[in-house]
Design a protein around this nucleic acid. Sequence first.
DNA 1: CACCTTATTAAACGAGTGTTTAATACGGCA
DNA 2: TGCCGTATTAAACACTCGTTTAATAAGGTG
Lengths: 222, 222
Amino acid sequence: MADSDKTDEVLNQSVQERLLNAAEDIFCEKGFEGTSIRDIAASAGCNIASVNYYFGGKQQLYEQVWKRHLIPMKDSRLQSIEKILLQNTKKHTLEDLIKSFAESFIGSIVDSQKVSNLNKLMAREYINKHLPANMFLEEVMMPTVTAMQKALIEAFPDINEEKIPFIVFSLIGQLVHVVHVRAMFENGIDDLTRKLFDSDEVINHIVKFTCAGIRTYIKENK
Amino acid sequence: MADSDKTDEVLNQSVQERLLNAAEDIFCEKGFEGTSIRDIAASAGCNIASVNYYFGGKQQLYEQVWKRHLIPMKDSRLQSIEKILLQNTKKHTLEDLIKSFAESFIGSIVDSQKVSNLNKLMAREYINKHLPANMFLEEVMMPTVTAMQKALIEAFPDINEEKIPFIVFSLIGQLVHVVHVRAMFENGIDDLTRKLFDSDEVINHIVKFTCAGIRTYIKENK
DNA sequence: CACCTTATTAAACGAGTGTTTAATACGGCA
DNA sequence: TGCCGTATTAAACACTCGTTTAATAAGGTG
């Protein structure tokens, strides 16, 4: 199994790349503490000492795994917001904005398996922090939340502005919950929850549900 | 510090009780892997071997820590639902039901510190499972979800029944997110998120937001 | 060729883990 | 008192972990 991974294509990658890829897979599956650098090195087909030689240690390898994805992840989410707002037509609806954001968050479109794994690792990071300071928080979460708040305020000025943080909280809460529930039921899902794995149906629900909630906060005066 | 814990009151407890209490505190703070039985034994003021003598090992001690709370936790949530439904007056509103459930979930009422710690440990358990099979899922989550779904169907038959699972999903997603965000910001919260620690304000929002979302699914025919 | 930097390796290190063992202390009972 | 089951202990065990070391190999440059 480990040997079959070492295809020509893989072996053509540099040791650093192989380590990063192997580390990402195993970290996603087993979390930081659950992963040993011996596992990583074996999967990457190189010596344990390479981890320290190239990255300086397990911790810093973990950080590099993240840094490869944090900025693209953040950018993807920000772009999903801007994509809607910058439509030259002014007829973008609240539903459009929420839907575009939800899709980029859950990752129903591109590379869903990889996004799902990263989301799972991110869920771990919520609870057991291994990244320095609040790297993930400051580089991904806060910019995303802030951008979403700003988008709502600017595009839909009728919404009660001081409730915007709560609205974004509810939206992200639901989206994160999708990731968690999927992780919980990754082995043996039952009928009731299987639909949560159908991104379209979940997203449609979240969009409808959230927009209704948002419209509760529309100011009376217009 | 460890010695100061050993007040007379604590020492009067049995070794089992002291181990369970110490284990609960440290497990909540550091998670399963992050906790060593040496830490637990030291905090409980007894020998490491006691863990294996009384509980059979770290894993089984962890399970006992949970079993002390799972049933009461589940019962608390179920009762919060029934409390509303069984009011002899028929004038319970959707808001009453959601609010009562949310309060029992977040634990704004009783013993908020302990509930918060357990919720944090539960958040860990979502991601890194250490309980056998799906003990938490089957003994707490599923009964709670099922009861909530049933309550909504019976008390508010106007709601589109096949959307009920999604509704409960969105509600619980928001409630769990409160726990997660609180855990993330436990050190150094900023102004924007401080309000999330005010249970009243968060709960009021979630109730309003969720009820609006639910009413989206009210059938047209009446 | 000799030289030097970079890569890669097997082996060892030291610390920490959960668990087990074997010895000791306690406390009721005959 | 002597016995016995329970409780508690210090020590050892076997193992895994991340990291370090020191030796070897590779590859380009003079």
